[in-house]
Computed example of a mutant assay.
Amino acid sequence: MVNLGLSKVDDAVATKHPGLQQYAACQSHAFMKGTGSFVLGTGVLFSLQNLLQKKLPYRLQWNLLLSIVTGSVCSYLVTRSETLKCSDLWMYLETGNYPDRTPHTEEPAEPTDPSGPRTTQYGDVME
């Protein structure tokens, strides 16, 4: 049996997916980075707001709210970024190549006969 945190994975599944241990470690690291960024971001912004309290006087509850919301957004962005890296690692470990994350844009097809009458997608002739 292979341990992944608190749960155990069957040996058949672990042999079928040899990169499972690395993926689980990567995900754990991503979640810990997200938690750390929440704590650090909230603490830093709260401290900055306390230093600026004389210039921007507003109540403590708004300081806390703004700090927690900003820390949550930072945590989400860090965790999402790291989870995408872990997903790419999993795809690499399973298939042997990285997924292509570049956006695919298709260029519109140019008309073949621009001098003649054009038709719409419904078959109507345009002048």
Rank of each mutant, 00 (worst) to 15 (best):
M1D: 10
M1Q: 13
V2N: 11
L4N: 05
L4Q: 09
L4Y: 11
G5M: 10
G5S: 12
L6C: 11
S7I: 15
K8W: 14
V9T: 14
V9D: 10
D11I: 14
A12N: 14
V13T: 15
T15E: 15
K16T: 12
H17W: 15
P18Y: 13
L20M: 14
L20T: 06
Q21H: 11
Q22R: 13
Y23E: 01
Y23S: 02
C26A: 12
C26I: 00
C26R: 04
C26F: 05
A30H: 06
A30F: 04
A30W: 01
A30L: 02
F31R: 08
F31Q: 07
M32S: 10
M32I: 03
K33E: 02
T35Q: 06
G36T: 02
F38I: 00
V39P: 02
V39F: 13
V39Y: 09
V39D: 04
V39K: 05
G41I: 00
T42Q: 08
T42C: 12
G43K: 04
V44S: 08
L45W: 09
F46D: 00
S47C: 08
L48W: 10
Q49A: 06
N50T: 04
L52Y: 05
L52E: 01
K54D: 00
K54Y: 07
K54P: 02
L56G: 01
P57I: 00
Y58L: 00
R59D: 07
L60W: 12
Q61P: 00
W62G: 00
L64Y: 11
L65I: 03
L65R: 08
L65H: 03
L66Q: 07
S67H: 05
S67Y: 07
V69T: 05
V69Q: 03
T70L: 08
C74I: 08
S75H: 06
S75T: 01
S75V: 02
S75R: 04
V78H: 02
V78E: 01
V78C: 04
R80N: 06
R80K: 08
S81K: 06
E82D: 06
E82V: 00
T83P: 01
L84D: 04
C86W: 03
S87H: 07
S87R: 07
L89N: 01
L89I: 00
L89W: 01
L89M: 07
W90R: 05
L93M: 03
E94Y: 09
T95G: 03
T95L: 09
G96Q: 03
N97H: 12
N97W: 05
Y98F: 11
P99S: 07
D100N: 13
D100E: 04
D100W: 06
R101Q: 10
T102K: 15
P103M: 08
P103A: 10
H104T: 11
E106G: 13
E107D: 13
P108E: 06
P111W: 11
P111L: 12
T112W: 12
P114Y: 11
P114V: 09
P114W: 12
S115Q: 11
R118N: 10
R118D: 07
R118M: 09
T119D: 07
T119Q: 14
T120Y: 12
Y122K: 13
Y122F: 15
G123Y: 12
D124Q: 11
D124G: 08
